[in-house]
Design a protein around this nucleic acid. Structure first.
Length: 146
DNA sequence: GCCAACGTTGGC
DNA sequence: GCCAACGTTGGC
């Protein structure tokens, strides 16, 4: 089997660690958990574009302000059970894949000119963001992954 | 259809 | 705790 890299998409999930942290995601195990509560249409479109096997950074907002791990999409989008009937919101399931050996801080991202166009920098409030393959690679390297 | 008012997010 | 950015709501 060979990888067709262009079909792999990368994402970033933001979460306040006091609400749902990386450690909780890890503790939840490999079955995957529902990423629910997204109430923004741009974020919703990003959820809908995800495929099983896509990877996403796990970012701690408010406290930490750093990318701490990598998650994997385990189930494609389906209606958000926490949404009111008739509302269009969706969820995906994700599982923790592995930590970044060295968390990458927002400050470090802002200090790297090659990452100036990252959504994290340009659309700070968007809770589910796309990440380009180039950005993914740079941050993995900054985070201590080969 | 415009836009002021308001609520929320999230960095600082 | 403050406030800028941004999305949503509702009056006109």
């Amino acid at each position: 089997m060979r990888y067709i890299i262009s079909l792999m998409n990368y994402w970033l999930f933001k979460s306040e660690p006091s609400v749902w942290s990386w450690d909780m995601q890890v503790a939840a195990g490999s079955k995957g958990t529902r990423w629910d509560g997204v109430r923004n249409h741009v974020a919703k479109q990003n959820l809908k574009a995800m495929h099983v096997g896509d990877l996403g950074f796990f970012y701690h907002s408010n406290e930490g302000k750093d990318i701490v791990g990598i998650a994997e999409i385990t189930r494609e989008h389906y209606p958000d059970p926490s949404a009111a009937t008739g509302e269009p919101w969706v969820v995906v399931d994700i599982k923790a894949k592995g930590p970044l050996p060295k968390p990458v801080s927002l400050a470090a991202i802002k200090a790297e000119p090659k990452l100036a166009k990252m959504s994290l920098v340009t659309s700070a409030r968007l809770s589910v963001q796309p990440v380009t393959a180039a950005e993914w690679k740079i941050i993995c390297r900054m985070g201590g992954l080969a």
